[in-house]
């Protein structure tokens, strides 16, 4: 049930990102909602879970876009893993700490994406990539964290997304 719900949340995030958020661009970019959810998940449940969900979420995006399958899977896996590093070291209840984790996690995920594009032979000038995509997307995701994180955290700890105790 929880897995189905998580999959549905990812699917909705992806559809919103491809449609409505195209009209709500800030600094020319739209947020990476799937990446944001992966980061939340990694931050709450740890690196291993974050990397796993990141890989699956990224793969979903790759299947929708249809080309260079794996670029999103790997970059989102890296972001989920990175966010999970803070699981035991940082206060997960604090939305401002979550915002900083989101921003750095987004920047890390987008940077890995950029490197994978270079590896695939797609050359994008470094400063253009950094200042016109990586940093703006990190800021946008940070802004959305302030609005979305509390709800996601409550659902994960005491709501419908709570993991079953083993």
């Amino acid at each position: 049930m929880r897995t189905v719900l998580l999959f549905m949340i990812f699917a909705v995030a992806l559809v919103l990102q491809a449609t409505i958020f195209d009209f709500f661009r800030i600094f020319g970019v739209k947020p990476d909602l799937v990446l944001l959810l992966v980061i939340f998940y990694g931050f709450i449940y740890g690196s291993k879970e974050g990397a796993f969900v990141g890989f699956l979420g990224g793969l979903l995006v790759d299947f929708l876009t249809g080309h260079y399958i794996g670029v999103n899977a790997l970059s989102k896996m890296a972001a989920g893993f990175f966010a999970g590093l803070g699981e035991t070291k940082l206060y997960k209840e604090n939305v401002f700490i979550a915002t900083i984790v989101s921003m750095t996690g987004t920047a890390a995920g987008q940077s890995v994406y950029y490197l994978l594009l270079l590896a695939a032979g797609i050359k994008i000038p470094f400063f253009l990539g950094l200042f016109q995509v990586i940093i703006p997307v990190a800021l946008y995701n940070g802004l959305l964290t302030l609005v979305l994180y509390g709800r996601f955290y409550r659902s994960s700890t005491s709501g419908i997304l709570k993991m079953r105790e083993i």
Partner: peptide, 11 residues
């Protein structure tokens, strides 16, 4: 009827 969900590619 649809757009690329990311910021890097334009389809």
């Amino acid at each position: 009827i649809g757009r690329d969900p990311g910021n890097w590619f334009g389809t």
